[in-house]
Write a protein that binds this DNA or RNA. Sequence first.
DNA 1: GTGGTCTAGACCACC
DNA 2: GTGGTCTAGACCACA
Lengths: 125, 125, 125, 125
Amino acid sequence: MAWTMENDRPIYAQLIERIQMQIVSGEYPPGAKLPSVRDLAAIAAVNPNTMQKAFAELERSGLIITQRTNGRNVTEDAELISGIRQKLANEHTADFYDKMKSLGFTKQEALDFLTQSFEGDKDNE
Amino acid sequence: MAWTMENDRPIYAQLIERIQMQIVSGEYPPGAKLPSVRDLAAIAAVNPNTMQKAFAELERSGLIITQRTNGRNVTEDAELISGIRQKLANEHTADFYDKMKSLGFTKQEALDFLTQSFEGDKDNE
Amino acid sequence: MAWTMENDRPIYAQLIERIQMQIVSGEYPPGAKLPSVRDLAAIAAVNPNTMQKAFAELERSGLIITQRTNGRNVTEDAELISGIRQKLANEHTADFYDKMKSLGFTKQEALDFLTQSFEGDKDNE
Amino acid sequence: MAWTMENDRPIYAQLIERIQMQIVSGEYPPGAKLPSVRDLAAIAAVNPNTMQKAFAELERSGLIITQRTNGRNVTEDAELISGIRQKLANEHTADFYDKMKSLGFTKQEALDFLTQSFEGDKDNE
DNA sequence: GTGGTCTAGACCACC
DNA sequence: GTGGTCTAGACCACA
């Protein structure tokens, strides 16, 4: 689990994406209690304010619920989570397909590239 | 050819990507003479300096050759172009695959998403 | 430390060379924090944009690391620095040798010229 | 004899330097008749106007004499030539030494670099 | 007319 | 306050 930051995108945006991934992929299951902002900021080696900003955004999207005096939890709404998961998957797919098409590849070639990328990945299921 | 700009990424970066696509996809074939900075800037409705910055980057990558006082040409090196095309395709594929894996999808599901995205696209071959 | 500019070469190129020298010669040691673009621009009496351009180039070569919103530092990679130092020395030497050879001087004569130039330089060690 | 042009310096300046070298090194001895501008331009694959500009400069420095109806000749003044040769050599040497000093090398190290560059050059005398 | 450079000044996101 | 981007407008060398 690389915890490195890219240098050309806002840190808070990278944090949002990463935490969102962790929730949506089930690493933080619905209802799970999240570590404190301070702890997460320490782990990620970022300014707590930056982590706070990321959380605010995640709360806006409904993925995270703040219990006023009791930290933050992942939403219990499993449908919301899986909806976002689908939405992200669709976006990424469309994005990928668009780019390959712009590069002048056919749909078959796009599939081939993808199939090919499975080899060389020992984690594949 | 949509000539619209997103507003969350630097304009010059979008210009780079777009021109790179045009070269790599063969719209500007190897050796082709490119329009002048001023002209392209006018077409894209950006400041000539911004277009210049994009071109500087493209030249650094070797895709474009500048002839002092005589405009710019696409490189004659067709291998370089196709190499970059491959490289971009690999990057996009790896990127897509990584994201889908992070979302907890299997390789088969990733393939399904991609296949599904073909429908609804009337341009598919 | 003369802070004067030649006028037959782009200012930004001279800035690059000068800062590169300062890093490579150890004046700015590995990891050192650099003054802000605005400050350096003021010191050198150039437009901040010009200084920015110089820095962008230095970052591309890996000598400088930019920390978003927190200034720039010299790379920690001392090997990279010394590698560039060697590379520059080799280039200058080859360049000098080539020129002397083109002028029809033998290697011994080139050495003599160099030895001779030491006299009249009181800083020599 | 590479006849290639760099891309970041004026062509005419490169022509001047090259022809000057050829005269000063004795390739075109004092009094020798030079090829026509048209021929030289063809050889160098540059616009005749550009070659003309180079010649104008060389004439200003006295290295070349134009015989109104009879082409151009290298000056007969051997002292002028050898003077320029010395001057160039001194300039290049000072330049080299300065750069090595800026890089933090001692005079002995500069000598070492130069000596070392002899090896690997089979043309050395 | 071409590319290259530079300035002055502005605005923005980020921390 | 920091770096990053963009614009408008200017000037220059070159061919």
